[in-house]
């Protein structure tokens, strides 16, 4: 009975103030679309970046002709460093064999082996790769010839993924604020349109929540409609564009992203929550009983 009353009142209000409701709904729709597109995209880029990061290594080259004792000292020094995930010793011959695999002709021309012995360090945390290199460079052990890490490459990848995340988060935040403001405005107009009813309700002693529920439900309906439309559009987009691409070209390594069902549920929940917040903000300000 009560639920029926609330829903009836909410729908009555929605149909009466169609224009502001539509505006609020469209904003929520856009917010949901942005989130729905960028969440998987960010996940994919972070996934790729993480893959690259895990490939980040430090190569430590050993001086030609270093004694076994010096090599052992260098190894011990590396092993003492924090953040060393794994350590691999690559001898001159192994290195040459690897290189010949990549480019047999070029190395066939060489009479001797120009490659040094080396240690390959995979850091536990890719972000700490520079620290490893720096600590080896200061006060280098006798056998150390050179330390190389792909500092610039890793820096670039790290800052790029960071930027993507930041921009998306900022964009989403802006849209969220716009959605909340527009829902709040819709509800405010709705309160204004129904001020006689509200006055009568207060007059005859309706409880605060009895007065508020229709407005909260109205706001949440706006959110639900926007969210549902967004999910539908995302589904269509996924079916028509992304899926065929993924099937035909097997893009990249296809990093794992959020499942569509979970994404849809999350978006709907977020839309309803955002509009509930919007309604709540207005009700607090304009519907003191």
């Amino acid at each position: 009975m009560r639920i029926g009353f609330f829903l009836r009142e909410a729908f009555r209000a929605l149909s009466r103030s169609a224009a502001p409701s539509l505006a609020a709904m469209l904003t929520i729709l856009i917010t949901a679309l942005v989130l729905g597109v960028f969440i998987p995209v960010v996940q994919a880029t972070t996934g790729t970046a993480n893959e690259v990061r895990s490939r980040v290594v430090v190569d430590v080259y050993v001086k030609d002709g270093a004694s076994d004792a010096d090599k052992a000292a260098l190894r011990a020094r590396i092993e003492q460093l924090p953040n060393v995930g794994s350590l691999q010793y690559i001898s001159k011959d192994q290195a040459l064999a690897q290189m010949k695999k990549k480019n047999a002709q070029a190395f066939a021309l060489l009479g001797s082996n120009p490659l040094p012995d080396s240690f390959r360090i995979t850091p536990r945390d890719p972000g700490g790769v520079n620290a490893i290199a720096d600590s080896l460079r200061t006060n280098p052990p006798a056998a150390l010839d050179d330390v190389r890490n792909r500092r610039r490459d890793t820096d670039r990848i790290l800052s790029a993924t960071g930027l993507v995340k930041l921009v998306t988060a900022g964009l989403a935040a802006l849209f969220l604020i716009a959605s909340i403001a527009l829902v709040a405005n819709t509800i405010r107009l709705s309160i204004f349109a129904r001020r006689r009813e509200v006055e009568v309700m207060r007059l005859v002693g309706a409880t605060n929540w009895f007065i508020r529920w229709p407005f909260v439900i109205e706001g949440m309906l706006v959110g639900l409609m926007g969210g549902t439309l967004a999910v539908l559009l995302l589904l269509i987009g996924k079916e028509t564009f992304v899926d065929p691409l993924a099937h035909r070209f097997a893009l990249l390594a296809a990093p794992s992203t959020i499942s569509f069902t979970l994404l849809a549920v999350l978006l709907l929940v977020a839309c309803v929550a955002v509009s509930a917040i919007g309604s709540g903000v207005t009700l607090r300000r304009f519907l003191r009983v």
């Binding site: 006689r196 009813e197 006055e199 009568v200 207060r202 007059l203 005859v204 002693g205 309706a206 409880t207 605060n208 009983v289």
Partner: peptide, 23 residues
Amino acid sequence: PRKKVPKLRRNVGVVFQDFKLLP
């Protein structure tokens, strides 16, 4: 307390000059 105000208003009927009817 605020919560009891609705109950109070149910026990006080009020009539106004401008009727306050829903058109």
